[in-house]
Simulated assay, not measured.
Amino acid sequence: MSPRAKALLLVLVDMALPIGLYYVLRAMDVSYHSALLISSLLPGLSVVASLVRRRRPDGLGLFMTAMMVGSAAVSLLVHDPRFLLAKDGWITAISGLWFLASVRGRQPLAFAFTRFVLEGRIGPLKDGDGSGRESWDVLWERLPAFRRIWRVATVIWGIGLLTDAAVRVTMAYTLPPDVVPGLGGLQYGVFMVLMQVVMVCYLVPTGLYNRWSPLYLPLKETPA
C-alpha cells in the first residue's frame, strides 16, 4: 500500500469512523458521555495495529502513539461531557507544543511527517545520474538551508495547531454538544487545506521542489 493510501486509511479510521459512530450511538439514545467515550477509543485501534506490526516505533510513531494513548486516557478518566468534547482541542494543543519543542531536536516533526509522503519524489537526483532522488538523510546532514526550511515549517505547524486547538476548545464549551463532533470533523478538513496552502506558499519559494534549485548546489560543491 502506498504512503498516500495509508494516510487516507488512517484518516478514515481515526476521524471519519469515530464521528459516524458517535452519531449512530446518539441515535440509539446512548448518553453524551458514553457515546463520546466509545467513539473516542476507536482511533487507538490503528495505533495498536501499527505497534504490533512494527514493534519498535520511530519518532513519528512515538508521537502518534503518545497522542492516541493520551486521548484514550482522558476519555476513560474524565466524566465531564464538555471536557470530552474539548479533548481533541487539548490534544491538538499538546501536539502544537510538541511540534514547537521538536524544533531544537535532532529532526523536527514537520520533517518526519513530510518525508513519510514525499521522500523519493522531490529533491536532486543522486550524483546527477538519474538513478533516483537523494536520500533526505543526506540532504539533512549536508545542507544547512534544508534543515532551516524544516525547522521553520515545524514552527508554522506548531502555531497552526495551537490556533486550531483554541477554536476547538471554544466550540466545545459554547455550542450544543451534538453539533461539536460534526463541526470538529469538518474543521479537520478546513485546517488541513489551509495548512497545505500556507506550506506551499512557504516551501515553493525555498526551491525545495525544484531539483535544480540553488538550495541543492552545495551537494555538487562538496565531495560525497
Rank of each mutant, 00 (worst) to 15 (best):
R168D: 14
P176V: 04
L162N: 08
P177C: 08
G185I: 00
F116Q: 13
A145K: 09
G185P: 02
G130L: 10
G158N: 06
T163Q: 14
W136F: 09
G123Q: 08
G123Y: 01
V117L: 15
A172P: 10
D178M: 12
R133A: 12
G185Q: 00
G184F: 11
W140S: 14
F116W: 11
T174R: 00
F146Y: 15
A145P: 06
D137R: 12
T154W: 10
R148T: 11
V180Q: 02
D137K: 12
A112N: 09
R147N: 13
F116P: 04
L183D: 01
A166Q: 08
V152F: 13
A112I: 05
D178A: 13
E141N: 06
D178H: 13
L125Q: 12
G184A: 12
G120F: 09
I149A: 03
L186A: 12
G123T: 07
T114A: 15
L183N: 00
P144I: 03
R151E: 04
L175Y: 12
F113A: 08
I149S: 07
R142F: 08
F113L: 10
D127T: 01
G120W: 04
P177Q: 05
T174G: 02
V152M: 13
Y173R: 04
V138A: 03
G130W: 09
G160K: 02
V169E: 08
G120K: 05
A165Q: 10
L125A: 14
I156N: 02
E119V: 08
D129S: 15
T163D: 14
G185F: 10
L186P: 02
V138N: 06
G185K: 00
P181A: 08
P108F: 04
R168Y: 13
A112T: 00
R133L: 08
D137Y: 08
L162A: 09
W150F: 15
A112C: 09
D164Q: 11
T163F: 15
P108K: 01
W157F: 15
W150Y: 10
L175F: 14
I149L: 00
I149G: 06
E134M: 11
L186S: 00
L183V: 06
S131V: 03
Y173D: 03
L118Q: 07
T114H: 01
R151D: 03
D137Q: 14
G123M: 10
T114N: 10
V117P: 05
V117N: 04
G160V: 00
V138S: 04
G105R: 01
P108E: 00
P177T: 04
L186Y: 05
V167W: 14
I159A: 04
A145I: 02
L162H: 07
V169R: 09
G132A: 13
E119N: 06
L143Q: 01
R147Y: 10
L143A: 09
E134P: 05
R133I: 05
L118K: 09
V103G: 05
T174I: 03
G105H: 07
R106K: 13
K126N: 00
